[in-house]
Design a protein around this nucleic acid. Structure first.
Lengths: 230, 230
DNA sequence: ACCTGAACACCGTTCAAGT
DNA sequence: ACCTGAACACCGTTCAAGT
C-alpha cells in the first residue's frame, strides 16, 4: 500500500483542465518569451503538462493554432486614432497593424498561409471599411482595396523577418543590395541608375508612402466593367 | 583480396560530382514532382546519393536553397509581352510573375523570407522599371513602387496556398467567408453590407484590378518632402 | 578541400488503449 | 467524451573523422 503523500510542500497548482482558450494563452506566452518557432504542439503539450495528442481535441493543427495566436495579438491594434482627416487616420490604423506584426514576422508569414478570421481581425476590417466609406470611396473599390491594404501590411512584416533576425542591418542588409551594386549598366541601365532609391529611404517613410499610394489607387481606380460606380 | 567486380550489368551511371548547380537542379526536379515541402536537405542528399552534411559545402542552409530554386523558376516569367500600352504590358508582366508563383505557393512564402537576388529576379526588376520609365513615372516613385508591386504579387501567390491545397474551394472557401456571413449588422455594418464584394470577383479580375490600382497610385503619389519630383 | 556517417535535438500527427 | 503514451515518419544542422 502506497503511503498517501502529505498534500504537498507548497500547495500544488492544480493542473487546470485543458481548453482551447488555455492552449491559446499558453501559446501567446511562449510566443512572447521565445518566438513562434517554439510554439509547437509538442512544446505546448509539455507546457501544459500533457501529451501532444491531447491538444488535437481543441485545435485542428499547428496552422490553426498560429492563426488563433495572431488574432489574439491583433487586439493591440489601434483602430481609432484621434486626429487627422480620413486618409491620415487610415494610414495610422494600417501602420499600427503593420507595426504589431513587425514584432513577430513569423506570425505575419503564418497569416499569409491561413487567413485570420477571428474577432479582432473582423473589427480591424470593419474599421478600415468605415474609414474608406467616410472618404467617399465607392464601396466595391473599398471592398477589394481593403484586401490589398492588409496584404501589403502583412507581407511587409513577413519580409522584415530576416532583416531583424540575422543581425547587422547596415553592412550586409541583403544579398539584393550587393547584387544591385554589382549590376552592369549595359544590361540593367534602370537598376544601375536607381540603385540608390531602390535601397534607400527610412522604413517608416516607405511604409507611409506605400499606404498613401494605395489609398490613392483604390480611390481612383474603378472596377472592370463598372465605369460609373454609383 | 576482393575479386574485382565485372564493370557492371548495365554500365553504372557514374555518380556525378556534387556542385551547387547540380543540387539546385535536383531541387527543382523534386519541387516539380512533389512540391516544396519535399525539397529538404535530407531528401536531396538521398536523391544525390550522399549524406545531408555534404550539401552544406555548397548551400548555406535550407532558406538559401529555396531562394535559388525560386530564381530558377523566375526564368519562365514573360518580360516582354507584345501588345498594349505601357500599363497593359506592365500588368501583363506582373500577372505572369504572379501566375508563375501560383503554381508553387510555398515558394512564394519562401520568397518573403529570403528575398531573391538572382539573375532572373534582377532581369524582372529591370523590366518593370523600364516600363514605369516608359510611362513617365518619376524615377523615385518607380523605385519605391516596384517593391510594392512585387510584394503584392508574391503575397497573393503565398496566400492562395491553402485554397489550392485543402480542396473544396466552393463550399468552405475559408473561415473568413463563414465569419463574414455570421457577422452582426449592428456591430459591423460595413462588413455586413459589403460581404458580397469582399468575397466576390474572379481571381484574375481582382488581380488585374489590384495591379492597375497600384500603378495609378504609384504614378500619382509624390514622395514625402519631394513635392516637385524632377 | 571535399565528403561522410552518426549524432543531437527536435518536429506533426495518428493510433489503440485507457478513464 | 476526453485524455494519453508510444509510435511512425520525418526534419536541420553540426561534429569528428576520413580521403
Amino acid at each position: 500500500m502506497a503511503v498517501r503523500e502529505p498534500v504537498s510542500r507548497r500547495e500544488r497548482p492544480a493542473k487546470p483542465a485543458l481548453s482551447r482558450a488555455g492552449i491559446v494563452a499558453a501559446a501567446v506566452a511562449v510566443l512572447r518569451a521565445e518566438g513562434l518557432e517554439k510554439v509547437t504542439m509538442r512544446r505546448l503539450a509539455r507546457e501544459l503538462d500533457t501529451g501532444p495528442a491531447s491538444l488535437y481535441v481543441y485545435v485542428a493543427n499547428t496552422d490553426e493554432l498560429h492563426a488563433a495566436v495572431l488574432d489574439e495579438l491583433l487586439g493591440e491594434v489601434d483602430l481609432a486614432p484621434a486626429a487627422g482627416d480620413w486618409r491620415d487616420r487610415l494610414v495610422r490604423v494600417l501602420v499600427s497593424y503593420t507595426t504589431t506584426l513587425f514584432a513577430h514576422p513569423a506570425l505575419a508569414r503564418a497569416a499569409l498561409v491561413s487567413r485570420p478570421a477571428g474577432e479582432h481581425y473582423l473589427r480591424l476590417l470593419e474599421a478600415l471599411l468605415a474609414l474608406l466609406d467616410e472618404g467617399g470611396v465607392p464601396p466595391a473599390q473599398a471592398a477589394w482595396g481593403v484586401d490589398v491594404l492588409l496584404l501589403v501590411g502583412t507581407a511587409s512584416a513577413a519580409e522584415h523577418a530576416t532583416r531583424a533576425e540575422s543581425g547587422d542591418p547596415e553592412r550586409e542588409w541583403d544579398a539584393v543590395a550587393a547584387a544591385l551594386r554589382g549590376v552592369s549598366g549595359e544590361t540593367h541601365p534602370h537598376l544601375r541608375a536607381l540603385a540608390g532609391p531602390l535601397l534607400g529611404g527610412r522604413p517608416e517613410e516607405r511604409m507611409t508612402w506605400s499606404f498613401r499610394m494605395l489609398i490613392n489607387g483604390i480611390a481612383g481606380t474603378a472596377l472592370p466593367g463598372n465605369e460609373e460606380p454609383s
